[in-house]
Design a protein around this nucleic acid. Sequence first.
DNA 1: TCGTTTTTTGAATCTGGTTCAAAATATGCC
DNA 2: GGCATATTTTGAACCAGATTCAAAAAACGA
Lengths: 238, 238
Amino acid sequence: MGTSERKQREREEREQLFLDTAEQLIAAEGFIQLQMAKLAKACDYATGTLYQHFTSKEDLLMALMARQSALHLELFERIEQWQAPSRQRIFAICVAEQDFNRRQANYVKLSQYVMTEAVWENASEARRQQLLQCGQPICRIVSGIVQQAIDEGDLDPQGASTMELAYGTWALCQGSHTLDHTQGLLEAFSIPRGPMTMYRNMHRLLNGMQWQPLLDLSQPTVLEQLVKQIEQHLKIAS
Amino acid sequence: MGTSERKQREREEREQLFLDTAEQLIAAEGFIQLQMAKLAKACDYATGTLYQHFTSKEDLLMALMARQSALHLELFERIEQWQAPSRQRIFAICVAEQDFNRRQANYVKLSQYVMTEAVWENASEARRQQLLQCGQPICRIVSGIVQQAIDEGDLDPQGASTMELAYGTWALCQGSHTLDHTQGLLEAFSIPRGPMTMYRNMHRLLNGMQWQPLLDLSQPTVLEQLVKQIEQHLKIAS
DNA sequence: TCGTTTTTTGAATCTGGTTCAAAATATGCC
DNA sequence: GGCATATTTTGAACCAGATTCAAAAAACGA
């Protein structure tokens, strides 16, 4: 019946209100400061109502993550559509990642936190599934690019599965973000901050996979050009 | 005077008692369950006494991490002494890492948690410094190996700094652990669990750096032999 | 031995997440 | 509309557990 449809929609709207507001509060004072009661009040609802949407604070944080990753996905989908040599496309993923993380620094911190056992275990099973689901399309796109490379003869898997190669690039991205994000780490070891370090290492990895065309890192401008080109395509104002 | 020396030593012993007991409790029921009052009681001290050693629960967790990384370091130091081609040595770091993490699964989870902003910010400044200090020697060893490779002509940095190359391997290790450790992720994307995926990607990265001698991944046995050899050297009963 | 300083104690405090009985609202029926 | 029933919302009470701090105990020094 029509009534219950409207109710459903209203419920959905309220959930978005909660999430929007939570995002604002987090942006303003960090996610550690987020308080359930404060959030509810800021939305003009009682605390209990908040708990009809989220089984716990952790569950809320995970919901926030899941929503954010939709944005994340959007970026990836743009790359999926892009007609370009496979090696440019896989690298575009890294550039997009990097840019996304730079803009959404809070998101990185949040995802780091959410993936923690302490948090993960405290969210509802449904939410965990939802979050894993969010990863699926991203995974599909990345391994799609790897597959394209193999099909077009740019990449000889040498017995490795598509996923294994995708995993490599993913791990390098992931690890770089973690290191970049660890308080004081780069400074302590005097590694220059910025994406280029990661970009170069990514190309070393891709070169090591024999992913054609190989990129010559001894010519810094080649990489710089490539990055510029990709940023342009992604319409990133770096 | 002599008295205060003894006092100092007793204080130190008590701190170790707290840490040892905390480790046991964590091993038994996970670090989420760790409660300050429970821990104090288990050591036959009052809660307040615990707080004379650690400014907060987070501070305690970080102290635990710092102590663990001494073990971690030990492993690395063994590799530092090892007379072998640079490429074997850098790879040995990964194998050691991997093995260490397999054995000390709790430690990985803990370090993931501790590096989180929410936790990091809640520990004392001194503790944070201490933890960063722990990273120093590891960093020194890794970049030492990179340097050796360059000096011996196994590796042409092509303008990259020693640290940049070390960062690459580190990030790949780090990222692999994070992915491996994320609940349900490997399963969701049907990537086989186990260290070999990471090992192969590490060699792709090293090959991409043109780190000699290159390793031929199309011959699975070559890598297997190498791993076996290194495990033997590290006296790891895999 | 006694006054002073340091250390230890653990009950009280405080914070903030979570619950749930009561109140409010919506729904369906005549 | 008016009424009985079901659903939703409310927010004060509850609770867990980290942290504090005034009082008690112990150590020290003369």
